[in-house]
Design a protein around this nucleic acid. Structure first.
Lengths: 231, 231
DNA sequence: CGAGGTTTTGAGCGAATTCAATTCCGGTGG
DNA sequence: CCACCGGAATTGAATTCGCTCAAAACCTCG
């Protein structure tokens, strides 16, 4: 744990379009702790009281619900730069668990720091507002996929969106989700995900090597989306 | 259109836990217009630029996505007291359409009024934050239903939640959604929804009369939820 | 090289959709 | 007041899609 350099991550990245004065940053960022965690780490658990929020500096994290009773459902994937876990400001219990899919490096912002930011920095609240608005859109997107598409459409849609999310610049983009996890995100069983992806690899729609994939025939993937959803 | 009485609705209900001083309310609420609209009215349309937010004083509204190309998906149902449509503060285009399922009465808050509230009333932003946090939870709930349950489970879950949302006090709760719309919410086809509900009516799990339903065997509905999702 | 987990593949089954037809219901006009 | 119309709900039969169960092929790591 070290608090140095956090001015470039936690507070800064949160207050994207809010202007926080230097002194405040200086005073607050000592309370933010930066740290690493290996893949598989559970940052927090559904049903427990929230004690901090995080900024994800590097890696991928899944937010998953219903780990307990039924079948788990991944509700969101977080990539570098995202701020998450701030529901402590409004809720007693976490509504999902956060689990690292890769080694991660993040900054931890304890609840009281959040509270300070919220009351003392109007820019913070506004930034938070924008984030949640975007999060809401993402989850709505997911709901639409789950509600209106069948297996192939969901998978094609995911691949295309995942590429976008990771920037088209990278050719081989990391895919740190197992087939099972893809299923938990897309509401499908492992076998279904595997069957479709295996076939698409045979048909050269994309390649896969060591946890990374490369899309080859984006048009055919997009074509799947056309055919898939009913008229 | 009348602006009277809006201090009791729009601004007040938004600033639930923010304290707005009387003078400000007085000054602002003249810009909020109250009005009625019949069932079927489209308050705003997906893809158009947002020009106002609304407070729903009476009635039920559906937020629906993808009206255009594929199959439509209802992403949220709004009931009396809810504040919605404020994405204009952050986004260029509406991400879903808002359509009245019943006759509605609502207050309209034009964009510039929202802007004023946001900059001049810290309580407003905080309240908005809480709303969106709750909205996010609701949509996540929906995603979980869609991703992990099969037909019967989704319908049972909906009935139970709908009752809760309308308050257990009312015995005959209004169900202003057609079977088709229920399908668009739950990711099912009309026939599937109809089959399940018709059977449950035969088996006296609930009754239906003139657009209203009454749950009779909540336990058996809950039992469906247990059996439904895989272990 | 071997162990354990993940991915892939196959066969059979069950669930939900599609297509098609019938019944129900509210509202309208005679 | 009653017959009729049109949209919504219901029901049936056939089909497709995704799931389950089970086994084989693959890695990856020790």
């Amino acid at each position: 744990m070290q608090s140095s350099d956090c001015e470039n991550c936690a507070i800064r990245s949160v207050a994207l379009f809010g202007e926080i004065d230097e002194a405040t940053v200086e005073r607050l960022h000592h309370q933010a702790q930066q740290f690493d965690a290996p893949a598989g780490t559970e940052l927090y658990t559904e049903g427990t009281p929230p004690d901090a929020a995080f900024t994800l500096r590097e890696g991928v994290i899944k937010l998953v619900r219903g780990d307990g009773n039924g079948r788990p459902q991944i509700v969101r994937l977080l990539v570098r730069g995202e701020f998450f876990g701030a529901e402590g400001l409004f809720e007693e219990l976490r509504h999902h668990s956060a689990i690292a899919l890769t080694p991660v490096v993040l900054c931890r912002l304890p609840n009281d720091l959040l509270q300070q930011l919220q009351t003392e920095e109007p820019g913070f609240t506004t930034a938070l507002l924008g984030r949640w608005r975007r999060a809401l859109n993402e989850v709505e997107d997911l709901a639409v996929e789950l509600g209106t598409r069948k297996a192939e459409g969901r998978i094609a849609s995911f691949l295309l969106h995942w590429e976008t999310k990771n920037g088209h610049a990278i050719e081989w983009l990391p895919l740190p989700l197992s087939r099972t996890e893809l299923g938990e995100l897309l509401g499908l069983r492992v076998e279904t995900v595997s069957r479709v992806m295996a076939r698409w690899k045979r048909e050269k729609l994309f390649e896969e090597r060591g946890g990374h994939i490369r899309l080859l025939e984006r048009d055919r993937l997009r074509a799947v989306l056309e055919t898939d959803d009913a008229a």
